[in-house]
């Protein structure tokens, strides 16, 4: 991967909730078109780190650069204002574990909300874009359905289309298959795989080890608020070096009932 042309660089990110120091200086650089998965036990800080990347959480300290957006955090630094935050988030898509679709709007209206409201796109144009994106995630026939009429997998695919509608530079996926029934996981992963093949820059927090190994260029293992190991996906998952990562993967394989491949 081309590390000289990073689209995203997070440097030394610290974050605490009250007295609980969740992130202790996490750094990550991602090249354009790269797919990076973050794995680790719950409480390791991976979701918090992801949420720091579109500033749903504000780091206490550190630096963040995404595309043309630059932020510095720490004592004496002014917190980013709401306009700056909104501008950053136009360029960084996020998909949530619990979908967070707008229940009072149809699938299509969920998708076009961003383009119409934030980018002032004409409604007709947005609808065309929305229908294209719904088709892309395999839901062309669900445009007029309300979220309550959709399965979990379908909801998540609408949520992905909603994020893509902003034409983001980077997509963040926060455990997007964790709330799904097992038989619905693959349809969502297929959409993500498809995005990867199109060269979308993505950061995924996931518990799907096989998928992470398969779709990612790099995998990072987070433990106790630090990036304990990061490297090529194959190396990290098949031949882990860090003792904590070895223990984590063993636990994972025991629970999943699969031997280390």
């Amino acid at each position: 991967m081309n590390q000289t042309n990073p689209i995203l660089a997070a440097k030394n990110i610290w974050k605490a909730f009250g007295t609980n120091q969740v992130l202790k200086g996490v750094s990550l650089t991602v090249a354009r078109g790269e797919v990076v998965s973050l794995i680790g036990a719950s409480g390791s800080g991976k979701s918090t780190f992801l949420r720091c990347l579109n500033l749903l959480e504000t780091p206490q300290q550190g630096e963040l650069a995404i595309g043309r957006h630059r932020f510095e955090f720490g004592k004496g630094r002014r917190a980013p204002d709401k306009a700056q935050l909104a501008l950053l988030r136009r360029d960084v898509g996020m998909v949530f574990q619990h979908f967070n679709l707008f229940p009072h709007r149809s699938a299509l209206d969920n998708v076009i909300e961003g383009p119409v409201q934030v980018k002032n796109m004409a409604k007709a144009e947005a609808k065309e874009l929305g229908r294209d994106l719904l088709a892309k995630v395999g839901l062309a026939d669900k445009a007029d359905s309300f979220p309550s009429r959709l399965s979990g997998g379908q909801k998540q695919r609408v949520a992905i289309a909603r994020a893509l509608a902003m034409k983001p530079d980077v997509m963040l996926f926060d455990e997007v298959t964790s709330a799904l029934d097992p038989e619905l996981v693959s349809e969502v992963l297929a959409v993500i795989r498809n995005l990867a093949s199109e060269g979308m820059t993505m950061i995924l927090v996931t518990h799907e080890m096989a998928f992470a190994a398969d779709v990612s260029n790099r995998v990072g293992f987070m433990s106790e608020g630090v990036m304990a190991e990061i490297g090529a996906a194959e190396d990290v998952i098949r031949t882990p070096q860090n003792p904590r990562l070895i223990a984590f993967l063993n636990r994972f394989h025991q629970q999943a009932g699969t031997g280390p491949a």
Partner: peptide, 26 residues
């Protein structure tokens, strides 16, 4: 749910608009 606010933020919407278009109708 707080997730509704976050979903609005994540597509670049500002607070007032999220309130008017997403939260208040629900």
């Amino acid at each position: 749910d707080r997730g509704q606010w976050e979903a609005g933020q994540a597509i670049g919407m500002r607070e007032g608009r999220i309130f008017r278009r997403i939260v208040l109708p629900q």
